[in-house]
Every structure is written in structure tokens, then in C-alpha cells.
Design a binder for these strands. Structure first.
Lengths: 342, 342
DNA sequence: CGGCGGATCGAAAGCGATTCCGCCGGCGCC
DNA sequence: GGCGCCGGCGGAATCGCTTTCGATCCGCCG
């Protein structure tokens, strides 16, 4: 196979110097149209393609964005990764992906591997708080969805979104509600829970009291199923009439538990999720949830990263309530008419 | 921030030449233990980290593996990506991910972007046949799951796996079966279908005849739901008693259609999938399917890529049947006793 | 008409590593 | 004892590009 042509070859073929070739390549500097034309002809004649590596060495910059996610298998992160990849591509950048498998050590080694690789910037969807990172970041880093270290955070407005869910459930008449929270060591888990609770407290002060019960788990299916099973295996009058989960996966687990216990959703029990993963629209019944605008998050994160100078302020984008079949009016209303057996 | 130390700094600090430093770095060449020690001390004293870019320029080789998938949002591909990332990491390599969004043009531009970037090798899970690729591949390329161009293929043994499903369904007594096939322009779609059909034909010759009906769609949820809805909206005696789908997503779509039409799975209808995505174990009822050993596929693909010389022969790994709740004995058996109304 | 500033371009100096080439010293062998 | 060979090392070239540094040339002002 013939050696790949270099700037030198192009320069000779066009009868100019390598400097000039480089100048037309970058497009910035002033080059006379005649020469520019000749160079462009030479480039296409030789099929020249710039050597990315050499450029990177010289400028110590690449057009690669590093992304670290806790688990690419998680549909929400997959969605995020897809959106980031698209957003990066739109800016002429490529994506390098690393999955930390929820291991904070792996997470940090991935970050420093990216640093070694002179990436243009790093986006990390944290699985830890990132406190142990020692490397001085020579490139912009931003946290997405969950805070990493002290880097600026782009995330859904968890508080606003959780409030949406609270309003929805309260509006449907539910007064005995269980909240399945996410891990308290994640900002997302904490904020969603706190906003939900404080909204409900607000209702309790101004209107009818609501019984709120909180259970903590991880964000995954199993947690949701296990917790819901506990919640729902009590006698009907002690059961919550609505379960709000901190993630779709928990909610789907809860759906499965309800089904196993033969509790009709949404007629006996309402279930809500958070994320709007694609699966949410495929389970039976379809899940009422919060849509996290993944592509908007991605776009913001990428442009923060690429901005000159890189953005340094947190950003938050609003979620929206997606009402589907898993939530409905509180059955208790009927019970109250026929006589409450409590 | 202080300039990063280079080989030159290390050399000075250790009192040797840069050549020697490089030699101990590579570990291959012969260096006297005394000097080796001094160099290592200097390295850790200065906190030296080799510059990946410079190394790449000089050797025109990196430790990055490029992966192109049709859609990272698809759980099966996400699984595959996760496994590949892990396998790559085990060999000290990183992963660069690109999602082609089922666009063959994007696919090819991603491949050539990888080529530009001097990756160590490229794994592509094709969404097209890759015929339009013009770049001469300067690095090993291998196809995973679906054939890309003329590059060696690592895939599940589709034929063997489809046969497993056919045997399972036939063994349960089903004689009126519908097969939801994948796109005929994918090798996976074709092979699964053909093996299934030919197995059924075999049964027809030696034993009872089976009515086999084939419908073609894409691999996604919607295709499965749509096709199943058509199939199942006929009167009960004309309906298939089993639907075998070419992907889990199709099967899950079919499950949803059956539910919407109030057809009991598995008592009135058996449904089987293909892939064993994690969701398969979460739907109701849990899906009988074929497990594609994603991590084994990934491991094989990576080692083929990294082998010296790179592997050139196709490889195939067997799938295994996972029997869950969505398949059961044919209800027809009963019907036959009470008199077949056909 | 001389000088001056800006536009334009060529030449060369790196970026940080690998690797080839050649020198040096010690060893074995004739 | 001399010669050749080889292990071990230092120095320099090199990978392909960007960018600085002057040099040149032009128009224009005084």
C-alpha cells in the first residue's frame, strides 16, 4: 500500500511550502486565492487526509470528547450517550466512551486515561463523588446528571420535576403515598426526594394531610421490586394508594411486584417513575413518568465543554410530566363513600 | 501549572540518555538492572506519564479500539458495547464508540474517522453491508453479529440457536406457528429465519405437518407489535398458537399486542424471542428466548482484533435456550380432543 | 523617490516519543 | 596478543503537523 500523502507531498504537488498548505488547511490565516486553489487541487488530487495524531501532538488538543458513565447498559445512560454522541458530532467531535461499572476507582482511572489522551474535554456522569481525583485537570470537565468533584453540573431540574409528580399524585386524590427514593449519596436521589417531600409537606399544611412513607433503595429494577413488595404485602387499608419512584426502573420493578400481588394498576394503585426511558412506554400499563430531556442535557453539556472559555456555572433544564396509564384517581375516594373501614 | 515532564527530563534526572529511558519504558530491549532502577526512580520521582499522542505519532499505533454500533440505545448493542469495553480494558485498550443511527453513510464516515485516528482496530456491528467503503483498511476490522463488508465475522450461531427455538416450540406441541423475521438485508435476520424454517420443514417431512407463516419486519418493538396485532386479530382457530420472533424486542412488542387483545400468554399463545436482553427477564410473563453470549462474543472479537496477525476466519459461538414463562404447551391439544373446527 | 507598514509566504524550529546507527568495552577464539 | 563480535548505551534522525520568524513585495504617504 502506498504511503499516505503528507503536507509535504501536497506542498510539492502544489508548488508551495508546507506552511502555506497548513494555512489553507486551518482556513484562518490569509492566503492568496490563487495559491489556496492550487493547494486544494493538490489535496484532492492526492487524496490527502491530515494526520490527526501529528496535529494533536503539535497542538496538544484533539477533537475527542471523553464520556464516563456508570453503566452503559442502563437505558437512561445509553440514551444520554447517544445524545451526547450526536451533539458532539454536530460540533465535529468524536466520542470516547468508558463505563465505570459503578466503581469509583475505575471511574477515576478512566478520567485520567482521558487526560493522558489529551481529549478536548470530559463529561462524567458520576457514580461517585469524585473526591479522590488527584490529577490536575488540564481540560474542561463537566458533570452530567450527577455531580462529580467540584466540576460544573448540567442536570435535570430534579426539584421542579419531583414537584410535578407530587402535584400529579395529589391532584388525583392520593393521600397515602409511598416514595421509593434513590441512593442518598447521589445528588439526584437526594434532590428528588427532598423536593417531593417538601411539596407534600406544603400540601399537608394548607390542605388535607397526606401520609408519606419513604423507602430507600438503589435506582435499579430489583430495588423497586423488593421495596414495592414490602409496601404492598400489607392489608389493603394500610397500603399506599400511590407509589412514586425515583427512577423508571424502580417503578417498573414496582409494577411487577404489584402484578405478582394481583394489585390492579392504576385502579387500586398508581405508580410513577422518573426518566422516561424508552421502556417506560412499553410496559403494561404504560408508565406515568418524568421525561428528562436527554438531548437537551447533552447539547448543553457539550456546548459548555466546547465554549471558550469553558462554562463554569451549573445549568439545569426542566423535566416534563408524561401522563400515561400507570396513574389514576385514588380508589380511596370510592372507599370513603361506601364507608372507610379503617 | 508546571509543564509535564518528558522523557528528556526523566533522562536528565536519571543521568542517562532518552534512548535508554525509552528502552526501559518499552521493557523489551536489554538494559542493565542498575540503570533500569535509576530510570524507574526518576519516573516516579517526577510523576512522569508517557505522552500517548507522541507515541502514537511515532509508531502510528494506539491502544484505542473503535466500535461502531447501529444504535447504542438498543439494549442488545449496549450490552455488547459494555462487554467489549470490558474485554478491551482487560487488554489495556480503550474504546471509542460511534453510533450510526442505522445510517450506512454515517457508519462509513465513522469507520474512516477511526482510520484517520490510527486506532488499533475496528469492530463494527453493521447496519449496512458496508459495500461502499473505499478506504483501504490499514488496521484490522472485524464484523460483529452482522457481516460488514468482507471482514471476518464473529457472531452467535444463528442457525443453531434458531433450531433450538424450533425444537422447543415443536416439542411443546405447536403446529401452527408464526415467525416474525428480521430484515432480510441483515445476515442475522436471514440466517435465523432460514434455520427456523428448514427445521420446521424437517419436522413436516418426518412427523406431523406444521403450518408456518412468516412475516417480515425490523428488529424493533413496533415491528413486533404491529405484526403480532395483525396475526392475532383473526378468529381464534385461525391464529397461530406460537409466535417466534427474531429479536426480544419484537417478541416484547408481540407480548404487548397479545395483552391488548386479551390473549393469554402462555396459555393461549406462546411467544419466544432472541437475544436475552435484560428486559426479557422483566416483562410479564418473562420471555423465553435465546441467550446470545455477549461477553463471549466481545471477548472473541477483541482477541481476534488484537491477535498477531489479526484473525481472519469467521467465528461463531453457540446460543442457549432460556425457557421462561412466555412459552407453554399448545392449547390445540385440548382443542383436538374436543374436535377441531377447522 | 525613499521609506514604511501590512499582507503573504518560505524556511525552520519544535511537539515527545521511538528507533536506527555507531561507538565503546569486554569477551572468546584462533 | 590481536581480531571480531556482541551487549549496552548515547546521540540523532524521524513521525506529520503547526507556528514563529523573517524575508519579500506591494501600495502609499510624506
Amino acid at each position: 500500500m502506498a504511503r499516505m500523502p503528507t503536507v509535504k507531498d501536497v506542498a510539492e504537488h502544489a508548488g508551495v511550502s508546507v506552511g502555506t498548505v497548513s494555512r489553507v488547511l486551518s482556513g484562518e490565516a490569509a492566503v492568496k486565492p490563487v495559491l489556496r486553489e492550487k493547494v486544494n487541487n493538490a489535496i484532492s488530487a492526492l487524496g490527502y487526509r491530515p494526520n490527526v495524531t501529528a496535529r494533536a501532538l503539535r497542538t496538544s488538543r484533539t477533537d475527542v470528547i471523553g464520556l464516563v458513565v456508570p453503566d452503559i447498559t442502563n437505558p437512561f445512560f445509553a440514551q444520554l450517550a447517544a445524545s451526547i454522541e450526536r451533539a458532539a458530532l454536530e460540533c465535529g467531535h468524536s466520542l470516547m466512551l468508558a463505563s465505570s461499572h459503578n466503581d469509583s476507582e475505575a471511574e477515576q482511572s478512566h478520567v485520567s486515561a482521558f487526560l493522558d489522551r489529551a481529549v478536548r474535554g470530559i463529561i462524567v456522569v458520576a457514580s461517585s463523588d469524585g473526591s479522590g481525583l488527584d490529577l490536575p485537570a488540564s481540560v474542561p470537565v463537566i458533570s452530567l446528571d450527577r455531580r462529580f468533584g467540584t466540576f460544573p453540573l448540567v442536570s435535570t431540574n430534579h426539584a421542579q420535576a419531583a414537584t410535578l409528580i407530587a402535584d400529579h399524585l395529589y391532584g388525583l386524590g392520593h393521600r397515602r403515598i409511598a416514595y421509593i427514593a434513590g441512593p442518598t449519596d447521589t445528588e439526584a436521589g437526594r434532590m428528588r426526594k427532598e423536593a417531593f417531600v417538601s411539596r407534600m409537606d406544603g400540601f399537608a399544611k394548607t390542605g388535607e394531610a397526606v401520609e408519606l412513607e419513604i423507602a430507600y433503595g438503589r435506582f435499579d429494577y430489583e430495588s423497586g421490586e423488593r421495596i414495592a413488595r414490602n409496601l404492598l404485602s400489607r392489608p389493603a387499608q394500610d397500603r399506599p394508594t400511590a407509589i412514586a419512584a425515583a427512577s423508571d426502573q424502580q417503578a417498573i420493578g414496582a409494577l411487577r411486584a404489584a402484578r405478582d400481588l394481583k394489585i390492579d394498576v392504576p385502579r387500586k394503585l398508581s405508580v410513577t417513575g422518573f426518566d422516561d426511558i424508552s421502556l417506560a412506554n412499553l410496559v403494561v400499563p404504560r408508565l406515568t413518568t418524568i421525561r428528562q430531556p436527554a438531548d437537551m442535557l447533552a447539547r448543553r453539556a457539550v456546548s459548555l465543554l466546547l465554549a471558550e472559555p469553558p462554562g463554569t456555572a451549573d445549568e439545569t433544564v426542566d423535566g416534563s410530566l408524561i401522563v400515561r396509564g400507570s396513574s389514576g384517581p385514588c380508589p380511596q375516594a370510592k372507599a370513603d363513600i361506601t364507608g372507610h373501614t379503617n
